[in-house]
Computed example of a mutant assay.
Amino acid sequence: MPRTLIRYTANDDASATPAWGVSFGSAIAPLGVGDLSTGRLLTDHWDRIWSLPPAQASLPRARVRLLAPVTTDQQFICQGINYRSHVEESGLQLSQFPFNTLFTKAPSCITAADAPVVRPAHVRLLDYEIELGLVLRRSLPAGARVSADDLGQWLGGVTIVNDLSARDVQLPQGQFYKGKSYRGFGPVGPGLVLLTPEEWRRWPELHMRLAVNGQTRQQAYCREMIHPPAATLTELAGLHDVHAGDLIATGTPAGCAARAPGRAAMFLARHLLSDARKWQLFIRKGLSNPAYLRPGDRLHLSIRTDDGAIDLGEQTTVITGP
Score class of each variant (00 low, 15 high):
residue 4 T to R: 15
residue 8 Y to K: 13
residue 12 D to C: 05
residue 20 W to Y: 13
residue 24 F to Q: 01
residue 25 G to P: 03
residue 35 D to Y: 01
residue 40 R to W: 11
residue 42 L to S: 05
residue 44 D to A: 15
residue 48 R to S: 08
residue 49 I to Y: 13
residue 51 S to D: 13
residue 59 L to G: 14
residue 62 A to F: 03
residue 63 R to I: 11
residue 65 R to H: 14
residue 68 A to S: 11
residue 70 V to N: 09
residue 75 Q to S: 14
residue 75 Q to C: 12
residue 79 Q to V: 08
residue 82 N to E: 08
residue 84 R to T: 06
residue 85 S to Y: 02
residue 92 L to I: 09
residue 97 F to P: 10
residue 99 F to S: 07
residue 105 K to G: 13
residue 109 C to R: 04
residue 110 I to H: 03
residue 112 A to F: 05
residue 117 V to R: 01
residue 126 L to V: 07
residue 127 D to Q: 02
residue 133 G to I: 00
residue 135 V to Q: 10
residue 136 L to V: 00
residue 137 R to C: 09
residue 144 A to L: 05
residue 149 D to K: 00
residue 150 D to T: 10
residue 156 G to Y: 08
residue 161 V to N: 13
residue 162 N to S: 10
residue 164 L to C: 09
residue 166 A to S: 07
residue 169 V to M: 04
residue 170 Q to T: 04
residue 171 L to G: 07
residue 175 Q to W: 01
residue 177 Y to S: 10
residue 178 K to P: 10
residue 182 Y to A: 15
residue 182 Y to E: 15
residue 184 G to M: 05
residue 187 P to V: 02
residue 189 G to M: 01
residue 194 L to E: 14
residue 201 R to A: 10
residue 207 H to D: 12
residue 212 V to F: 04
residue 219 Q to R: 13
residue 226 I to F: 10
residue 226 I to T: 01
residue 231 A to P: 14
residue 233 L to D: 11
residue 236 L to A: 01
residue 241 D to T: 09
residue 243 H to N: 15
residue 245 G to E: 03
residue 245 G to A: 12
residue 249 A to N: 00
residue 253 P to D: 06
residue 256 C to Y: 02
residue 262 G to T: 04
residue 263 R to N: 12
residue 263 R to W: 11
residue 267 F to L: 15
residue 269 A to C: 13
residue 270 R to H: 10
residue 272 L to S: 15
residue 279 W to R: 09
residue 281 L to Q: 13
residue 281 L to F: 04
residue 286 G to D: 06
residue 289 N to R: 05
residue 290 P to D: 01
residue 290 P to T: 00
residue 294 R to V: 06
residue 301 L to Y: 02
residue 306 D to Y: 02
residue 312 L to A: 12
residue 316 T to R: 14
residue 316 T to C: 11
residue 321 G to C: 11
